[in-house]
């Protein structure tokens, strides 16, 4: 049983093939790290899964059901989305922002249950003290944490994150991924995270999917998917591998002429 099963997904934008037959699955309790250079098709794949764009061909199933047959509300109960960077600045409270995550269940009027869920999610993410601050008064890291809380409040079996850490400092990057890893392990949420930092990807992902020019180049545990060879082919970079207290460190060392 997978929470996400994408099969042979093809997508073209403006006549250019962006995804060329990508097959990828996410199981409950699993973090899949989606890596690859800029323009590899990571965001396009994420958008196709969310139903934000319709693939040219291929099949995307959420919880075993074809995403095309799901109503918008049913889809919103299956998959939650955290974008790359939250929009800055409308003065809406943190609590109200998180409550947006309850929309697929409550419509526009929150019940006691909805409020309680938001309250707990805020506490989980250490945001309780900020509950009544407005979004425009928060730092970038805090705002991204609120967006994560909003996705959690949606209570979906699958969370998809599009480079959630790229605008964050290293502390917030670690916090976010550690939190996601814990969520996946404790509650069996499936997580698909597009990410640039290979060390973080290797450390926190159960599996790595390496995307290059719209194709899945490698897939599997990090040490099989991320090798000197695959990194040179896809990123055009000589990388050094090492371990620090048992966690993998992948350092880009030198760009190679392609």
């Amino acid at each position: 049983m997978t929470v996400l099963q994408a099969t042979a997904v093809r997508q073209s934008i403006g006549g250019r093939t962006v995804l060329d037959g990508v097959t990828l699955s996410v199981s409950p309790g699993e973090i899949v790290g989606l890596v690859g250079p800029n323009g590899a098709g990571k965001s396009t794949l994420v958008r196709a899964m969310l139903g934000l764009s319709r693939p040219v061909s291929g099949d995307i199933r959420l919880g075993g059901r074809d995403v095309r047959t799901l109503s918008a509300q049913a889809r919103a109960r299956e998959i939650a989305y955290v974008p790359q960077r939250p929009s800055d600045g409308f003065p809406v409270s943190v609590f109200d922002t998180c409550l947006l995550g309850r929309t697929p269940y409550m419509g526009t009027r929150p019940g006691r249950e909805d409020l309680a869920i938001v309250e707990q999610v805020l506490e989980q993410l250490g945001l309780t003290n900020l509950a009544f601050r407005t979004m425009d008064a928060l730092s970038g890291g805090e705002r991204q944490r609120v967006m994560l809380a909003r996705a959690l409040a949606q209570q979906t079996p699958l969370i998809v994150l599009d480079e959630p850490t790229s605008a964050l400092d290293i502390g917030n990057q670690l916090f976010t991924l550690r939190f996601l890893a814990d969520e996946a392990r404790r509650r069996g949420v499936g997580v698909l995270v597009a990410i640039h930092d290979l060390s973080l990807a290797a450390r926190f992902s159960s599996r790595i999917a390496l995307l290059h020019q719209g194709r899945l180049v490698a897939e599997g545990p990090w040490h099989t998917a991320l090798t000197a060879e695959t990194i040179r082919q896809t990123y055009g970079v000589e990388a050094e591998f090492g371990t620090l207290r048992g966690t993998p460190v992948i350092a880009p060392f030198e760009a190679v002429a392609s």
Binding site: E113, E119, Q155, P157
Partner: peptide
Amino acid sequence: MQSRIHIGAASAAAPHSSAVPATAVSLAY
């Protein structure tokens, strides 16, 4: 505290299955 949240396929199918008492922050909201 945290165990009261059910994230996963089961709760997605029946989102209002568990009754949770409202507490301080909800009341303040």
